[in-house]
Simulated scan of single mutants.
Amino acid sequence: MTQPDVLTVRGEVDELSVDRFRSDVEGASHQHERDLTVVLSEVEFFPSVAIGVLATALKGAARNGVDFTIVADEESVVGRVLTISGMPFEDRVPGTGA
C-alpha cells in the first residue's frame, strides 16, 4: 500500500487565494484519482468558499474510491470551522503520529 501524497497549506485561504487552493488540491490528487492528505494545521483563515473546495474534493475522492484526508488542530480556527460545517478531519497525519 502506498502512502498518500501530502499537501500542506499555510497562511490564509481567502476569497483571493481560493482558486489556487482548488488548483493545488486538484493537482496533488490528480483530479481526485489519488489518495491525498491535506494538512491545514498552519492555516489562519478559512472561509466557507474553502470548505466548498474540500467538499468537492471529498465527493470526487469517494466517487473514485480514493482517500481524501483533512488534517487540522481541533482547537484552531480551521478545526472549529470544519467542526461547525460537519466536515470530517483528523488531528494528525494518519500513520505518522505527527
Rank of each mutant, 00 (worst) to 15 (best):
T83Q: 15
I51A: 12
A72S: 15
D24A: 15
Q31D: 14
V93G: 06
P88T: 00
T83H: 14
A55L: 15
V39T: 08
K59F: 07
F45N: 01
R22W: 09
L16I: 08
Q31P: 06
E74Q: 12
I84E: 03
P94H: 09
S23G: 06
P4T: 02
V81P: 03
G11L: 04
G11C: 02
A57N: 06
L16P: 07
E33R: 12
R22N: 03
E74R: 10
D19E: 15
I84A: 05
A62G: 15
G65N: 01
F45R: 01
E74T: 07
L16E: 13
R34A: 06
D73P: 06
I51R: 04
G60F: 02
V81D: 05
P88A: 01
A98M: 13
V38P: 06
L7T: 02
Q3N: 03
L7Q: 03
G79L: 09
T2K: 10
M1F: 13
R80D: 15
E75I: 05
S29H: 10
A50W: 07
I84P: 00
Q3P: 01
A57G: 14
R80Y: 04
A61F: 04
T37M: 08
V66N: 09
M87P: 12
D14Y: 12
T96H: 05
N64H: 14
F89C: 11
G86D: 04
L7M: 01
A72M: 10
V71D: 07
E33I: 06
R34Y: 07
E26D: 14
S76M: 09
G65C: 00
F68V: 04
F46L: 00
K59I: 04
P94N: 08
D19G: 05
I84W: 01
A98C: 12
G65T: 00
L40M: 04
V6D: 03
D91V: 04
D35Y: 00
M87R: 00
G65Q: 02
E44Q: 15
I51Y: 04
L40F: 00
G86Y: 12
D5F: 11
F21R: 01
A62L: 14
S85G: 09
E12S: 12
A28G: 04
S41I: 08
L16H: 14
S48H: 01
E26Y: 14
N64T: 11
V6Q: 03
D14V: 13
E33T: 14
G65E: 02
E26F: 12
P88M: 00
S23W: 12
S85Y: 10
E74K: 12
M1W: 08
F46S: 03
E26V: 08
R63C: 07
V81Y: 04
P47E: 01
L58S: 08
S29C: 09
L40A: 02
A50Q: 09
